[in-house]
């Protein structure tokens, strides 16, 4: 901000700010990727559970998770329908094949979102590479001018 700054110093400062912003953006994108990946895995697990439950026979003994890696005994009923969430704390009862289809659609949606975030992360990584090179060059130039 000092008026005595040379254009190279000003550019170095601007590029450094851009570099830090891009790094923070990349961190955010990586976190988003992880969250989406976890959601995909959760949906795949739910789909597989519904599929297996549909194939089970009435009266089959199963263990139902109650959290903290703990399970309670239960028996498969004749009703194989599932309640699938549609957001905002609302769920709709669906036949197993319908439930699978709706989960598949959600998995597709999530996969598209994952791809979009991955593409954006790749672009940001490229930008970071470019900016790092620029900052290094400008820093070296200032050092050779005896200013850094």
């Amino acid at each position: 901000m000092s008026p005595q700054d040379s254009p190279v110093e000003q550019q170095l400062r601007d590029n450094y700010v851009l570099l830090e912003t891009a790094k923070a953006q990349l961190d955010g994108l990586v976190k988003q990727q992880q969250l989406i990946q976890m959601a995909v895995e959760e949906h795949v697990r739910a789909r597989e559970t519904i599929k297996r439950m549909a194939a089970s026979a009435q009266g089959d003994e199963i263990l139902v998770p109650v959290g903290a890696d703990s399970y309670v005994h239960a028996k498969v009923s004749d009703n194989k329908d599932a309640a699938v969430g549609v957001g905002s704390g609302v769920a709709i009862r669906k036949a197993p094949d319908e439930a699978e289809k709706s989960l598949d659609l959600k998995i597709d949606e999530l996969s598209r979102a994952f791809k979009a975030v991955t593409d954006k992360a790749a672009q940001t990584e490229a930008l970071i590479g470019e900016l790092t090179e620029k900052v290094q060059t400008q820093y070296d130039q200032l050092q050779s001018d005896g200013k850094a």
Partner: peptide, 22 residues
């Protein structure tokens, strides 16, 4: 956006669809 999607799903569901709330 989530509320919009939920309303859309509820309006799309069959008349006799059984609905639950958390």
């Amino acid at each position: 956006r989530e509320l919009e999607k939920t309303v859309e799903e509820l309006e799309k569901a069959a008349e006799d669809a059984v609905v639950f709330k958390n």
